[in-house]
Each structure stands twice: as C-alpha cells, then as structure tokens.
Amino acid sequence: MSQYLGVMGLQIPKRLDSETEQALIHQCRKRNFDAFGKVVDAYQARVLGFVKRMVRNPEEALDVTQEVFIKAFTAFERFDGRCSLKTWLFRIAYNLCVDRSRKAERSLTEVSIEASDPESDPLEFADERWSPIEMLMTDELQLVVEEALRTMSPKLKTVLLLHDAEELAYEEIASTVGVPVGTVKSRLFLARAHMKAHIEEYRRGEVQ
C-alpha cells in the first residue's frame, strides 16, 4: 500500500472517463486505498476550489477538503451510484461547509443583489450586457470575480459555483441543496446578475 499517492497521483489525468470512474468506484467500495487515491487526485483541486470560496478562511478550507475525502472514504460503501461521483463529493463538501458555517454561527442571511448599487445596477434584461467579448479573464478581473463571490449570499454562491464552475445539472444541484429546480434557476440568475454588477462596476472604473 503506497503512502505516497500524492506524488503518484500527479501523473494521473484530472478528468476521469466514465469507464475508469466506474472501475475506481468498484474498488473504492472495497476500501481500496490506491483506488481512492486516484479519486482524490482527480477531484482534490476542484473540491478545494469550491470549499475555499464557501468558507473563506484558506486554512479552514484545507481542513474541510481533507474532511470531505475522509468522509467519502469511510462512507463509500453507501455510495449507491444514483448520482455521479463528482456530484456525491460536492454534496459532501456542501454539507460540511454548511455545518462549519452553523458551528461558527455565521450569518447565512441573503445578501441582496441590490446591495451593490441599485442605480448603477438596474437589472435590465438587455442581452448585450452579457457580451462575451467583455468577459475575458484577466488577473485583475479574477480578483473582481473573487470579490463578488465573497460578497455573495451563500445560497446564490453555492448554485453559481456548482452550476457554472463544476457544471452540475440543475437537478443535481437541486438534490444537493434540497430545493426545487425552479429555485436553483432563480438563484443562478440572481447570482449571475450579482456577478455582472460587480464586473460592470470594475469596467466602468477601468474606463475612467
């Protein structure tokens, strides 16, 4: 049994194809340490990215991410395969983040999207405001996006990250968060509007 799977794992492709994933799942159910190491290799960065944006504190995010994989390892026998492995891992991550927030007595109240600036962010429905040309990621824009995520309600942020960053389906997000699909769509739109408001503000400041 290898104790250095982290080093070994660097050579493993980050995206598991369906066949490989099914084989790994089969082995992980038998508590195969090496197979689970490959699962960790495939998903550790994505899970850490999600957790880091949910709990804010980087050290805490690392701890929570470890906890995600430990929980997954011990509970793998109960993974029934009705959802994808990725969805299952992010469900564990989401639940742990919510638990941490509750324990830390953090406020989970909504941050209204109107809080940015209602005058400059009228939430119009004109399509040109989503222009892809203006959405090229730069280091500076990345900071703006991260700042927008920090000021976003956890409810909106969860849906935005799971849908847009992790590409989970509406139904998968709905079952993970425990809300109807329609609510997921509503939250996704509001989250994008919140994000758009921050980016627009950044763009105006850059022009000036």
Partner: peptide, 12 residues
Amino acid sequence: SIGNVIRDLPHE
C-alpha cells in the same frame, strides 16, 4: 457568458 467567467476561475 458569466458562467464562462466562473468556469475559467483557476483551481489551486
């Protein structure tokens, strides 16, 4: 397109 911005966020 906002989704693309989120998707392009780097993973550490």
